[in-house]
Design a protein around this nucleic acid. Structure first.
Lengths: 329, 329
DNA sequence: TTGAAAGCGCTAACAT
DNA sequence: ATGTTAGCGCTTTCAA
């Protein structure tokens, strides 16, 4: 079903049919318009977005690249992005970039002429220069880039997450609450968000003259947290671990760590304390309640989409976390 | 940057440039090809997927509609779909359909000429006839539809999940293990997957001559489970609830229910037992370990994408659950 | 107000 | 093996 078929069926020109069916400033007469709509309805006309995109040179597409959509951190963000995009009649192209294929993923988005590309949490210590080049060219051609986590691309918008401050505040809060012996079960060394959290932790420690009993680096997953905790217990023995306050790189690592401690016969918060970051959904169901730093994940997605869709200068929105004390620490 | 610019820069025809850059059976000479590739590279050419789609009348897009992408059930499925689609150089259009906008969502996908539409878990007791009409027409025009959960559309492919059997087996397993007093905290009445699980439960009860002490219906969310459990305790008192085996409509309801029981001073599995369905990711971290019926969520996504991309007759794959006993029941 | 026609960037016959 | 050209379905000047 094409527009010209509809036009013929309604006995009008292509141009007129286009004007009544797919918006325009010029408004055809109401009787004509009605006839066209009727024809469209009976023929089951659905506009071809591809053809429209070609003619208007704008696609109504926005692209989101995440590390792992099954990670609650990213799926919460995705939900926000999708909601905001949909409200603006835009469609969401979703891709996962588990590292190496980031470039080809972005390439695919560019091929599809997405109006914006949102990069969630992929800021590594050393950014792939090819990626930067690709995204920069994309921007020069009118594409908009929004990064989530940190700002790391010239000319791009961003929703920055103050991980350093989160690490600092969480640690200070716990120190003020009387905690003294700390271990940090951090995320990957090459992820800026992970090292920022760790550095914030280290700063708080330094200010108080405390020294961390252990600082490790593992995957940002439940398994990563589990392994980090397991090896911590192996190295120090259950008795050595007792009394520690363990800060994990994020909530799912924290949950994995707690599971590992439990398997090692250690009870949280009885034997040791654990805290995380993010406040992922449904944490309320978890026992013990996890002490964490809350970030409004879905809202972050909305903000990123907002910047994507805006016509103004790309802006940077800052998000600061809020320490949430629960039972685990 | 357009193909014709590249062609001119390389001193060849549009057709030749197209052949070397974007596959074709006809293979231009290697020296020519090299020249074209070089030009494309220096000019930073990226094919316009829209134009290609128009010319080839195939978009390389597949659409996925889920209820809520932040629900681990759906995000796991989405991960599988995305992975499989990406492996076939296809892009994923993701949309959330919290009920009413299902039709417009599907409409948008059709406008974008997705090659297939995967509908995850939206099978309601009474299907919107407009939705069916829209999808049927889509299929007649060459689109492929795959439903996840149940098969409910003529001519569509499906990955069916045997919820009835899951409810049956889980209940029978628990009965054999000596459980006698059951309550069922089900999902929404209008969702077939929810009622199928409940019916399987009821069948197992009937076969053994047992009668459920309570059967309720709430939202398929942690909150739904929490409320169902809370009202159960309110109705029967803590003592009345003690000794019950509570089967929830899915895992997140089960976790919500356990939290509610805990807040009511009841311990699982000490005071009562709880089980769920799905085996969502990271359940291992949860304590007590949740007894559930495992479905290979990510694999289900892969299967659905597989059917979407296949050129053969749309098929229906059946997935049966596997009862996983853990500590909670 | 309505219509005719020139693209948008690319593919795929069809010619050469 | 390479080039010419007619579309793909739609928007949008420009004329009427």
């Amino acid at each position: 079903m094409t527009l010209s078929l509809v036009a013929r069926h309604a006995g009008v020109s292509l141009a007129t049919a286009s004007r009544v069916l797919n918006g325009s400033d010029r408004k055809p007469a109401e009787d004509i318009a009605e006839r066209v709509r009727a024809s469209a309805k009976t023929l089951g006309y659905v506009p071809n977005a591809q053809a429209q995109a070609l003619a208007r040179s704008t696609t109504g597409l926005i692209g989101l690249v995440v590390h792992d959509i099954s990670d609650p951190y990213f799926s919460s963000i995705a939900k926000g992005v999708q909601r905001r995009a949909f409200a603006d009649r835009h469609q969401l192209l979703l891709a996962a970039a588990d590292g190496i294929d980031e470039l080809s993923t972005v390439g695919a988005f560019i091929a599809h002429r997405t109006e914006a590309i949102i990069m969630a949490g992929s800021r590594r210590q050393e950014i792939n220069p090819e990626l930067v080049a690709e995204l920069s060219r994309y921007q020069q051609n009118g594409g908009r880039v929004v990064t989530i986590g940190q700002w790391w691309l010239d000319g791009a918008g961003a929703v920055t997450i103050d991980n350093h401050n989160a690490g600092l505040e969480l640690t200070e809060t716990l120190i003020q609450a009387g905690h003294r012996r700390f271990a940090f079960l951090g995320g990957p060394e090459d992820l800026v968000s992970a090292t920022d959290r760790r550095d914030g932790f280290a700063l708080a420690m330094g200010r108080t003259g405390l020294v961390a009993e252990s600082i490790t680096s593992n995957a940002f997953t439940s398994q990563g947290g589990y392994e980090a905790a397991t090896s911590l217990v192996e190295r120090r023995g259950a008795d050595g671990a007792r009394g520690l306050t363990v800060i994990a790189g994020n909530d799912i690592m924290a949950l994995g760590a707690i599971a590992a401690f439990r398997h090692a016969g250690l009870v949280v918060p009885g034997d040791l304390r654990v805290a995380g970051f993010d406040d992922i959904p449904n944490l309320r169901d978890y026992s013990p309640g996890l002490t964490t730093v809350r970030f409004p994940l879905e809202e972050i997605g909305v903000m990123a989409a907002d910047i994507s869709l805006s016509h103004a200068e790309p802006r940077t929105d800052r998000v600061v976390g809020e320490v949430i004390r629960r039972e685990s620490a």
